[in-house]
């Protein structure tokens, strides 16, 4: 999955599709492979469960965490930091941008589109077949078009993050394959990977492009 080694990776999608968990995994995997990584939480719409929640872990791993200054605080100020501009001027860093959900969240990327586009970013459209608003490939494509319109960037690859939270089984992923094929066909975009919980990867090894991921986004009673 060479596209994930691109120095510029933008993670877009419907809210709740699994963008943050995927972005955190990608940052850690790229770091483990030796890359100099910055993870940028560009979410200006979602108050909780966001990349910025993992700032401490990211720092421990030597990943630079860039967050809106008020992320996770008690105020609702959708301000961005200047740090991302600096990172986009640095050709050696791998910058992973975790964007807010839907068109409302994707607007924030528009601010950087002019800088990003000449650098030919990998733009991942994260989808889950188990989310009611994207429950058909056509509905998922409609959301993608809204996101592209708002963000001024176009998706380059599809990432299948289909899951049912704790009820996810290998079958959940298998049941989504037809949906993903159809979405790739009608969008004209190639599949980047199926992101699956690592303990399910073995059962799915017959499928091409499976990327094992850990679950980082958790609720307070998960101990």
């Amino acid at each position: 999955m060479k596209e994930l080694e691109n120095k510029r990776v933008v993670v877009l999608g419907h809210y709740g599709s699994g963008k943050t968990n995927f972005a955190v995994n990608l940052a850690l995997q790229r770091r483990a492979a030796g890359a100099e990584v910055a993870l940028c939480d560009l979410d200006i719409v979602n108050p909780y469960f966001r990349s910025a929640d993992f700032a401490e872990r990211m720092q421990q791993e030597g990943i630079e965490m860039v967050s809106p200054p008020f992320a996770g605080s008690n105020v609702d100020v959708p301000a961005l930091t200047g740090r991302l501009d600096a990172l986009l001027a640095n050709p050696d860093r791998q910058v992973i941008v975790d964007v807010g959900g839907d068109d409302a969240g994707a607007i924030a990327v528009g601010r950087y589109a002019r800088k990003l586009l000449p650098q030919e970013p990998t733009v991942l459209y994260i989808v889950s077949a188990c989310r009611p608003v994207t429950d058909t490939p056509q509905a998922a494509l409609e959301i993608l078009r809204e996101i592209e319109y708002a963000s001024h960037v176009k998706a380059t690859h599809i990432v299948n993050c289909t899951n049912l939270g704790k009820e996810t089984t290998a079958q959940t992923v298998r049941d989504s394959l037809e949906y993903i094929d159809e979405l790739c066909r009608i969008s004209g975009l190639p599949l980047c990977c199926h992101a699956v919980r690592s303990d399910l990867a073995e059962q799915l090894k017959d499928i091409d492009r499976v990327l094992p991921v850990e679950i980082f986004v958790k609720v307070p009673w998960d101990i």
Partner: peptide
């Protein structure tokens, strides 16, 4: 089964 946010 679908995966949803409480608000949705």
């Amino acid at each position: 089964r679908v995966l949803v946010k409480g608000n949705e």
